[in-house]
Amino acid sequence: MVFIRYMTARLVLPALFCVLLTSGPAYSEGPLDEGMGLLNNKCADCHDLKGPAAATLEDFLSRKGPDLFYAGVKYRKEWLSQWLVSPKRIRPAGFRYSENIKRVSGEDDMVDLGALKPHMALSREMAKLAAATLMSFKANEELVKKNALTDAPADAFMGELNFDKFSGCLACHEIEPEYGGVSGPEVYTISERLQPDFIYSYLKSPQSFDPKTFMPDKELSENFLQILTKFMLTLEEDEEDDEGEGE
């Protein structure tokens, strides 16, 4: 009996103490808490993790990266965790094009490549944790129409015609590398990056998600919303172009 007490005091209790220490109270509430710590540490300086969206132009312009407080209804988890490991620029003129362009006498304005800042990269483990945590951010869920797309197949010809001519999306968005406007995000990688229901809902009313965004509300009809969303989802990136990194 004395031996058992001795063993308990000298071996079992310290061992138990060590286990408690290594499991740690910081991780006791689950991996999302750990993920929040990571996001607060690495991402919060440039991204809004809590919302709401900017209500004034000054607030809008003070944000250095996309709002992430509704990341869970916007992004695809697999893409997030891969992109965070090797970030590649999505907007050719950066997150705020107006801060990254320069005048060229007699010519069109140009992207000031020197002004573009790269996005930090995370380790595979950190990226996985960040992506899992971001996917739990479900603000604006009520703005996203569930199963928004009909069963009618995408029409590539009508889709491109609509994107380019009828709705004028090409003015600001690249439909393939180096073809299209540069102030908005490229759309040829949209199927990898974003959830279809979000694309549809954002096209329908960008200002519902971000009142000050420089993506205008094109007042698209239901037919155009279906055509455009499905068309963009059929686009794929040309593997030749994989240079550059950042937002």
Partner: peptide, 27 residues
């Protein structure tokens, strides 16, 4: 001026002359 810079210059240009950064592919 700030509104113009934020929203309009992408097409109308930094100096408003219509030579914005997006114009190359515009029909």
């Amino acid at each position: 001026k700030l509104i113009y810079r934020t929203y309009c210059t992408q097409c109308h240009g930094l100096d408003g002359s219509g030579k914005g950064v997006n114009t190359e592919s515009m029909s």
